[in-house]
Computed example of a mutant assay.
Amino acid sequence: MSIYNYLVEKPNGEILSMETYRNKIMLIMNTASQCQFTYQYEDMQKLYEKYQQKGLEILSFPCDQFGNQNPEDGETTKTQCKLQYGVSYPIFDKVEVNGVKAHSLFNYLKHEVDCPEFEKHSMQQKLLFNHIQENYPDYLIGRNIRWNFTKFLVDSTGKVIKRFEPDTSMLDIEKAIEELL
């Protein structure tokens, strides 16, 4: 199976094939409108503006699985992101990323690359780990997505190259993108 075999849904209900992004570098992420990492919408927009003309696509999938931090529907989320953060990259309809209702695209992404060890060097990392361990311990098992703003980097041939956790430095993400461009 290839990433190009998957279908995704826009907030307006339109179905889009991932084939649309063939020959593009993709950064695919699950997001939330009311999360401690929501500021990353702005960071992602800056990356998009800098690299879109060189072949980068950023694809955002709102998800309400982590602390109910995206209670709005996909259309409302898309509108909020445009107004609050100037987001112009595609925002799709809400999905689940773990469990039996997980979107097939995210099941694919999760199983294509290893899940990095959960680092606990900073206070933010420790607090996030403790919160997940206390409230969502299953998300720490295997290749599950642990929290909002987990990102997957896909090269222009459709190969999933790397997984970035929510607290990964934007500089590290940008460096990995530049290596593919």
Rank of each mutant, 00 (worst) to 15 (best):
P11I: 01
K50S: 08
Y21P: 03
R22E: 03
N107Y: 10
N68L: 13
Q53T: 10
G67E: 04
V87Y: 02
C63L: 08
E75W: 15
L105V: 01
C35T: 00
Q125C: 13
Q80G: 06
K101H: 13
I91S: 00
D93M: 08
T31P: 04
E112G: 08
K24R: 12
L128N: 10
I132C: 10
Q84A: 13
T79G: 06
S60G: 11
Y51C: 07
Q124D: 13
F61W: 04
L105G: 00
K82F: 14
C81N: 10
F37K: 00
N30E: 04
S104R: 13
L105N: 00
L109E: 01
D138E: 15
Y139P: 04
I58M: 02
Y41R: 01
Q34D: 07
Y108G: 03
I58C: 06
F66T: 03
E134I: 12
L16N: 01
F106W: 08
Q45M: 04
L83R: 10
F106L: 07
I91Q: 00
L83Y: 12
Y85S: 01
Y48D: 01
K46V: 12
I58E: 01
N12S: 12
K24T: 04
L128S: 11
I28A: 04
N68D: 12
H103D: 01
S17K: 13
F92H: 03
N98D: 11
N12E: 03
G86A: 07
R22C: 02
Q133H: 15
F118N: 07
S88G: 05
F61L: 02
E72G: 08
M18G: 05
S60P: 04
V87N: 01
K120F: 10
M123N: 14
Q65C: 05
Q65E: 02
C35F: 00
I132G: 10
E42A: 15
S122V: 02
T38E: 05
G74K: 13
D138F: 15
V113H: 08
T76L: 14
I141W: 09
N12W: 06
Q53C: 06
A102W: 12
Y41E: 00
S104Q: 14
E42T: 11
D138M: 15
N68K: 14
V97W: 10
L140W: 12
E57L: 12
C35N: 02
C63W: 07
Q40W: 02
K46H: 15
Q65A: 02
I58K: 01
Y41F: 14
G99T: 11
Y139Q: 05
Q40P: 04
Y136A: 11
L56Q: 00
L47W: 07
I15P: 04
H121A: 11
D43K: 08
I91F: 03
F129N: 07
L27Y: 03
K24E: 04
